[in-house]
Design a protein around this nucleic acid. Structure first.
Lengths: 339, 339
DNA sequence: TGTTATAGTGTTAACGTTAACATTTTTAAT
DNA sequence: ATTAAAAATGTTAACGTTAACACTATAACA
């Protein structure tokens, strides 16, 4: 009694056309008279027909699969990328295949071509830090697979990408701190392998300079984007004789660590010390006080990346710098003036 | 100069057998003499041959795709499920297709059969809360798609599933609190739609009873697993004339909220009040003080679920209750005795 | 009016694999 | 040595779609 799988043939029969015409309608290629298109679309609806990906993929030049590869970045970051890509894929009838590319101890990536060959993906989305690995990029290019990178820092001419202006964002949040009266600003640098770390540091330094402030080397600590590294850096910063009145951590995890370290020292945040982060991951609003931070449009970047791959268009690809947003919450207080 | 796609034919020619024999080797079905198997496997390696999923899927009865559907559960939870499923899929040459099933305002799920029809998945992994929706389960069953549920709370006979013993875990962590001298224990209930909420509450009550303690209705607050709801409940609990000395929140997000609320009240944790959570999401160790909580084997559950789907085996499926772990960190202090 | 371009449609052969059945080879049993 | 059974391998036709080309109507022009 159960209906068998519905194929393009069933649709063709019902609409009284050939399967090729149906194919033209579903893949939006070639010309079909408006009236027949409607007839066919009605038939598709009536039968609840869904084209079979495997067949389309096998036969045609499009696989309807997009790949997303990742190394172990921040979990929340990955999640955002994932959700963004997923949404867009679902919208356009694509599927997303996710695969981890783990680096060996030397930081080299063993390229597992499985993803590539197995599913014949139409393109691959590459978030950081993978997007800055020449090894990966060249392998993919050789295999002739289109890629779109998310927030790459190097080799910007290598491929289409989407990003935000890290430098400008760091500049803005630093200036915000300065406007609140802070002059002694500690900075926790991000992971040296992530190009964004340098940009954020640059933006911060520039804001300092433009406001007539000098950079105090003691106030700069090298972190690695991890909570742990943030703790260590904050430990050093807060242990300083003449400690900063504000700390700018290059991501939220490290900022959260800084807050927690301050608490441990009996310092109130933002009463005794202000802290700002970067990224606006869920953690940022799950801690107390809630973090003032920069909201990265991570999901939007992933959506755009997916779009670029599904509908390549050199024109659109120039519109690839998305807006960040300064999110003011509770972790910064104006500096009480001291004479 | 570039080599064309390598197919089963190339392997067959190199190994000097028919394509069918090669097929038998790659899909591990049917009998092949050991010596020929080796010959073929060598050829596969030499050519870097990767079977084409689309073709296998189209031709055969196996699609090499597993589905994972989700409603918007806790982000960290989903991430764990995802990683677990992903790992196992990659290990066995499967691909994972992820799709969100959003409920409408009435809490009903509009079943989008796209996932099912489009990719012909071999099975679907269903985490909570979807795994307790009869609507979803019956649709999938009708469509004849194998499913494995993660931590379902109802209709346990409906399908294979993996879970942990929520009741026992809640019992154990409550008893831990009691052993630290706490008698006045506040409890923040989880979302009423998640069956786990009731189990955790039951475990808590049972521990109370077994230790000769009575349940104080004022100490029980209804939360919804969200940070916000945790804040509200903690607000009520801490505002009580005779406030509890410990709070057991049904998940980490709410526990984090409770800690943050305590801080806002000028209460030290765990000095003035102890807090425990449930789940051990990353947040649990990213806040200060670090949360004492129950570690759910979420990733392991997802891995097991994927395995069940890829290699169904009624025997193995009986071994489906995974171990939790009480993680003792810094958010609980023994109760100072007061006479 | 015929010619020519073009919009619209159809036919057939791939795509790379597995299912189902067919055949050959090996082993075991008399 | 003969036969039956089992093991190993091969042949062929799907699977559902699109590419490439072939064809037929319609429109546009001289």
């Amino acid at each position: 009694m159960k209906k068998d799988k519905i194929t393009i043939w069933d649709v063709a029969k019902l609409a009284n056309v050939s399967i090729m015409t149906v194919s033209r309608v579903i893949s939006k290629k070639g010309k079909v008279k408006e009236s027949t298109r409607i007839k066919i679309q009605d038939a598709i609806k009536e039968l609840h027909y869904q084209p079979n990906v495997a067949a389309r993929s096998l036969s045609g030049s499009v696989s309807y699969f997009l790949g997303l590869i990742y190394d172990n970045p921040n979990e929340a970051y990955l999640n955002q990328v994932l959700m963004g890509a997923l949404h867009k894929c679902n919208d356009y009838g694509y599927n997303l295949i996710i695969s981890s590319f783990e680096s060996d101890t030397d930081g080299n990536y063993k390229i597992d071509k499985a993803l590539i060959d197995r599913a014949k993906v139409d393109g691959i989305i590459i978030p950081p830090p993978l997007c800055d690995s020449l090894e990966i990029l060249s392998t993919l290019t050789e295999a002739n697979i289109p890629i779109v990178r998310i927030a790459p820092q190097t080799m910007l001419d290598y491929s289409p990408f989407v990003c935000m202006d890290d430098r400008a964002a760091a500049y803005e949040i630093t200036e915000y701190l300065i406007n609140q009266g802070h002059k002694k600003i500690g900075f926790i640098v991000g992971h040296p392998d992530h190009g964004a770390s340098k940009l954020r540091f640059d933006g911060m330094k520039e804001a300092l300079t433009d406001n007539g402030l000098a950079l105090n080397e003691d106030y700069v600590q090298q972190g690695y984007f991890s909570y742990k590294s943030g703790s260590n850096c904050a430990e050093t910063l807060l242990g300083l004789e003449d400690r900063p009145t504000a700390i700018f951590a290059s991501n939220d995890d490290m900022a959260a660590a800084a807050i927690s370290t301050a608490h441990k020292y009996g310092l109130s945040v933002p009463g005794d010390i202000s802290v700002v982060g970067f990224d606006d991951v869920p953690l940022a609003s799950a801690i107390w006080p809630k973090l003032t931070t920069i909201q990265q449009p991570i999901m939007a970047m992933a959506e755009k990346a997916a779009e670029f791959l599904m509908y390549p268009d050199p024109e659109k690809e120039k519109d690839n710098i998305l807006d960040y947003k300064l999110i003011i919450r509770d972790s910064v207080a104006p500096l009480a003036r001291t004479y």
